[in-house]
Write a protein that binds this DNA or RNA. Sequence first.
RNA 1: GGAGGGAUGGCAGAGUGGUCGAAUGCGACGGUCUUGAAAAUCGUAGACCGAAAGGUCCGGGGGUUCGAAUCCCUCUCCCUCCGCCA
Length: 427
Amino acid sequence: MLDLTFIREHPDLIKEVAQQRNTAVDVDALLAIDADLRETRRRAEDLRAEQNRLSKAIQGAGADREARDGFIASGREVAAALKELEPRERELEAQLREYLLLVPNIPDASVPVGKGEEDNVEIKRVGQPRQFSFEPLDHVALMQGADMLDIERGVKVAGSRSYILKGDAVLLELALMQFALSRITQHGFTALSVPAMAKEFCFIGNSQFPRGREQTYALPEDELFLVGTAEVSITGMHSGEILREADLPIRYVAWSPCFRREAGTYGKDTKGIMRVHQFEKIEQYVICRAEHEESVRWHEELLRNAEELVQALELPYRVINICTGDLGDAKVKGYDIECWIPSEQRYRETHSDSYFHDYQARRANLRYRGDDGVVRYVHTLNNTALASVRTIIAIVENHQQADGTVRVPEALRPFLGGRERLGRAWR
RNA sequence: GGAGGGAUGGCAGAGUGGUCGAAUGCGACGGUCUUGAAAAUCGUAGACCGAAAGGUCCGGGGGUUCGAAUCCCUCUCCCUCCGCCA
């Protein structure tokens, strides 16, 4: 959410940004509602002031019966007038908020302007895709061969895009989670295990709602939704608070399952488990002071942390700067880390590193009191540390051996009881 | 799932229709004292809208009333007991 005053003063900028970001918001309608609300509110406040004056007059009238009755009669009229105005005021407030939630954030000047995924800009490449001395398998053939994956029965249980990890794949998944938690906490981040179900306000605060609502699983009986990332729960957990500047920055690394409906992706990534409805993720999250430079500094640091993990897993990857059209509504700027997937001969997104300035904080009403006593909205950032399924794919495909086993990268071995190979030789 | 009790400022906790944005204590901040600190002592301090005047906020929403922290309805959350349960 942006500051309403800023929107009033820069309607044309908002329109331009909305277009660049492939999103729609009726700025003129928003401003019309705003003007109407301000006028309505002014009238209501005048009436309330009058009401307060009369209330004091009634008390001051004491035994003067006649004066008292006169004031009460006037009070009755004012109350009646207010009663007409107040529903209108509430209605306008609700309408304005609906529009405000649709206004996108202003991208940073360093974000490339573009229409979609194809306009994202690669900013670095690390590691060389491996030259195989044998015909490498895709993750499905490889994992099924090693009895690490059962897609058919996963689909039987939970429908398309579901899967069952088996055997060493389960150990690998847990090892990856522990590996990421262990590394990131060493950087001073506090580990969290957060609710995977959350109330609507968390999703609004985080900007998953109202747009993107159809990507989220709902539990209507309980008015809860399944989170697509721990980010939702973390934004919710501090919402409405006023933190102290001395407590900042707050750095979390959170473990949670992630649920995604993947509505509208029929036909995309139909083979294998590249795109699934449920996976596990370790997420980095930072709440810091409201300074652009500090946001940028953390954005880069979160990227470094994630890169460190990917490098330790010996995966070739690249980093891209996401263009305006692919950025969504909320981010000021975003990097993706994409790992090399041999079977696809291309890089695929495994991490997403974002900063928001106060956009999420405003929606979640998350503020801090500066050392100067001024209350401001915090800045928020987050980046994947490690997401289970896609990283599993990258590891098994990149580290597969001619015999059908998977070499365990050195850094991961302590989390797998020292094992050097996963799966069993089968080809 | 059933029965009961609660929700007030950073925290604890008064306040049952007007003089209450709200006593008091603790904590916080600033001053005095001190080499420094503690103690003592004096003082300051909530959030939101508004250029201001002014208005709003005592868990959320609705209602009664000229007037609600206080009365009524409703929702949420917390606590206690019972049931169920990893």
